[in-house]
């Protein structure tokens, strides 16, 4: 997958950030971020905590606002909060660290709700789509349970199905496996890998270096609000260029 990465980037970018800056009070969390993501590309954001990678991910569907710069999705700048933005968000899937499944709805209802209320899909069709997707992520048997009755790994797979049900152009993953018990990490990564293989455009904030290696087209290393290093996973993991990246990798790959 890595070899066609350059070729992917020749077409118009699906997501483009230019000169993006954001502050939390005195803290400059995003500093002059420029980033283009091509259709079908899988970009993995890694870096120490507090480096701004989650914030960056969340600016793409404007869950975080920015102070300056522009963000375009599919050629259109992100609109201000309102109907327009809601329409755009429906095309940008998001998967959270803490799953955030609607706890008062069953698994099936979780996947159906936005299809019907936002996408105006007929209920029967939405349910068919939901069951297909739940089957695809391997939780078809849990459709009538409530989220709290599922394991973390199952919940996160439902969350992925819920996002996919909107037929998004790009999927954002904000540390999707960080809240999971170790034995459940792989079942989620497996679903993500198969998504990547199907050509989904993905932005993934993660600490799973194995996933970055095997599924990413490009790795972005962030530190102190900046994209410090950007390369193919092979180049990044075997020969990091910057000291910050070398330091980071030496700390996490030691054990």
């Amino acid at each position: 997958m890595t070899e066609n990465s350059a070729e992917l980037r020749d077409t118009a970018p699906l997501v483009a950030l230019r000169g993006v800056n954001k502050h939390y009070g005195a803290l400059h969390v995003l500093q002059d971020i420029d980033l283009e993501i091509a259709q079908g590309e899988v970009v993995v954001l890694i870096g120490p905590s507090g480096s701004g990678k989650s914030t960056l991910c969340r600016t793409i569907n404007r869950l975080e606002t920015i102070d300056s710069g522009t963000i375009e999705v599919d050629g259109r700048p992100l609109p201000a909060e309102g109907r327009e933005l809601a329409r755009l968000r429906a095309q940008v899937g998001m998967v959270f660290q803490s799953f955030n499944l609607f706890s008062h709805k069953t698994v099936l209802e979780n996947v159906v709700l936005a299809q019907v209320k936002v996408g105006k899909v007929a209920k029967a069709e939405a349910e068919r789509t939901a069951r297909e997707l739940l089957e695809r992520v391997g939780v078809g048997a849990q459709a009538d349970k409530y989220p709290s009755q599922l394991s973390g790994g199952q919940q996160q797979r439902v969350a992925i199905a819920r996002a996919l049900a909107m037929n998004p152009k790009v999927m954002l993953f904000d540390e999707p496996t960080s809240a999971l018990d170790p034995e459940m990490v792989n079942e989620v990564l497996e679903v993500m890998r198969s998504l990547a293989a199907r050509g989904m455009t993905m932005v993934v904030v993660t600490h799973e270096m194995g996933f970055a290696r095997s599924a990413a087209n490009r790795v972005l290393f962030m530190a102190d609000g900046r994209i410090v290093e950007e390369s193919t996973p092979d180049a990044f993991f075997t020969a990091p260029r910057t000291d910050r990246a070398k330091d980071f990798l030496s700390k996490i790959l030691q054990h």
Binding site: N61, R89, A90, F96, L101, F102, A114, G119
Partner: peptide, 11 residues
């Protein structure tokens, strides 16, 4: 997170 999930789905 519940509201964020809803908003990110386009609600």
């Amino acid at each position: 997170g519940q509201a964020e999930a809803a908003r990110s789905l386009g609600m």
